[in-house]
Amino acid sequence: MWSFFHKLGSPPWLYRIAGTILRWLLPLTLVTLAVGLCWGLLFTAPDFRQGNSYRIIYIHVPAAVVALAGYYVMAIAGAVSLIWRMKMADIAMKACAPIGAALTFIALVTGAIWGKPTWGTWWVWDARITSMLILLFLYLGVVALYEAYDNKEAAGKACAVLSLVGMVNIPIIYKSVDWWYSLHQPASIKFTGDSTIDPSMLYPLLLMIGAFYAVFTCCLLMNMRAEILEREARTNWVKKLALEYRA
């Protein structure tokens, strides 16, 4: 058990194991994503009230779900690096931020596009949408804050604190559609009780949520690998790797 944690803190080990995982996870991710996209776009029946515009659900909901889940990963990694000074946790936290920002951006843009034919407007300043916009700024804030410091250790600490403070936004996003009057509908998929979505739409949606989780994991591992190399540039194993790259 402890040797596992010990290995987790070893850059070359993490670099190698992440590469091994990516070798099968990346193709699997791309196939799942392609199948899910075609399924949602071309093979499901239209919604009886919204018509075909509802097809946007297959990217909007997965992007939003994983953008929120990614924030947990970032905040937990930040807490670990703050408490135990684990370098790899700091790397994980930094790697999460741009992916989370991209996913939040997708959720907001597809939401706006979906809103036009459904609500008659691209944008409303209601609780759900505004709190998602704050999430985007939190992610971008972490990216920018990291770049603002020359001292990477201080940057890591500041970003960890920012991501932990930003956690307060997460329950607000979840509960926003219940707490405030909103154009946005409440959740259709429920862990307790029946989901209010037909199975023929639920399965492709679940597949797409899985695909987006896989995309997040792939990007996280790839970002971490790139970051590890740059931080370990002076070590022998990275020098050897560069030598092999040239060959």
């Binding site: 996209l37 776009l41 239209p46 018509g51 075909n52 515009s53 097809r55 946007i56 990217i59 909007h60 992007a63 991209a102 951006f105 997708i106 843009v109 597809t110 596009i113 979906w114 036009k116 034919p117």
Partner: peptide, 18 residues
């Protein structure tokens, strides 16, 4: 897509790009 094609395809295209 019964008039929704522009919205749906645009949303998918932007997401794929990102």
């Amino acid at each position: 897509m019964d008039g929704h094609g522009g919205y749906v395809w645009a949303a998918y295209a932007i997401s794929l790009l990102v």
